[in-house]
Nucleic acid binder design. Structure first.
Length: 301
RNA sequence: ACGGGUGUAGCUCAGUCGGUAGAGCACUGGUCUCCAAAACCAGGUGUCGGGCGUUCGAGUCGCUCCUCCCGUG
């Protein structure tokens, strides 16, 4: 068996529902390695059905990392993921020169590959204070505040997008410095090789798989899982496809059937968004999920 | 069979006095260095059921055929 010359992180990526999990099992078996999940929602132990976590048999047979490892009451973000994965990789590479990371969280993948600027976590109290101000005084007020505190970023940012404006303000208030001065966008050098494998297939086929998987999630008890989380629906982590639509149903804003249709539509939309992001990444080597042998051969060369 | 209604974008529907059709969702594309399965931006994709007629001009008016629905038989 050929193995790549140096320590290699294989990244298996693609839109939701494309077939990453099945292929990750094949690749992990072939290289006798472990799997790092790169999924910003499979992290949370309370959200298993709606995030299509691999089944227990697979999780038992092949060690997986960052699956059900955190609670929805913990705060987590891409920067933490970068730190955690880079730390873990040092341990894993000591045992095996090839490690597989699989998932579709675009920002998290980039954080691992290129690094992310070192910015502080935001204190929840400050976050809610700023969010309240936005609610009470409106977006124009927040824009004016940003223009005053960080005129450079004010000129760059999408002024239509409250989330961007509010986050910049959070950083300004937390650090006492402008957000723009801390946004260096420096690409970090990694001491291992990165091999990106992208999966894609016909759009209609992908949509069929997505629709079918949502039906399966419902059969597997997604409604009950969401019902348990309903009391915490205000948490940002639960502003997630598959859960927020069911919360609308619990609120009486739509029927169950309508909620399921919305989950399907929003999942398709998410898949498109992922493809838009991945499309511009020239490092990705694209394959059809059925090309198992070709992919393994490609990795081995 | 007769009477009434209906037919416009993939779906649900709007369309004034006759002036070559528009909204939501779907769909498609894009932005994005940290709450990212989030947030934001852009794009109308059409044999107006078919045909004939009136008119300078018909989604709109008339006739006719067809579809589906309701009622009566």
């Amino acid at each position: 068996m050929n193995t790549p010359p140096i320590q290699t992180l294989i990244i298996l990526l693609g839109p939701t529902g494309i077939g990453k999990t099945a292929l990750s099992e094949v690749i992990a078996d072939h290289f006798q390695t472990e799997i790092i999940s790169c999924d910003s929602r499979q992290l949370f132990s309370e959200m298993s059905i709606g995030t299509a976590v691999p089944d227990d048999q697979l999780l038992k047979r092949i060690p997986h990392h960052f699956i059900r490892s955190h609670s929805i009451f913990d705060s987590y973000n891409a920067a933490r993921f970068e730190t955690d994965v880079i730390d873990l990789l040092q341990t894993l590479f000591a045992k095996n020169p090839v490690i597989l990371m699989t998932g579709g969280s675009m920002l998290y993948i980039d954080a691992v590959c290129k690094g992310i600027d070192d910015l502080p976590d935001i204190d929840p109290e400050l976050r809610s204070t700023i969010s309240e101000r936005h609610k009470n005084f409106g977006i124009d007020h927040m824009r004016a505040e940003l223009k005053l505190l960080d005129p450079v970023y004010y000129r760059e940012v999408d002024l239509q997008n409250p989330v961007r404006i509010l986050h910049a303000l959070e950083i300004c208030y937390t650090t006492g410095r402008t957000f723009s001065s801390q946004r260096t966008k420096t690409v970090k050098e990694r001491n291992f090789r990165i091999l990106k494998i992208g999966l894609n297939r016909d759009r209609s086929e992908l949509y069929d798989r997505i629709n079918q998987r949502v039906d399966e999630m419902m059969q597997n008890g997604l409604e009950q899982e969401a019902r348990k989380l309903y009391p915490f629906k205000h948490l940002n982590t639960l502003n997630t496809v598959g859960y927020r639509e069911l919360f609308e149903y619990f609120d009486g804003d739509c029927t169950l059937a309508q909620a399921v249709e919305k989950i399907k539509a929003n999942t398709r939309k998410y898949a498109r968004k992922q493809l838009t992001w991945f499309r511009k990444d020239t490092e990705i080597n694209w394959f059809h999920p059925d090309q198992e042998q070709e992919i393994i051969q490609f990795i081995s060369n």
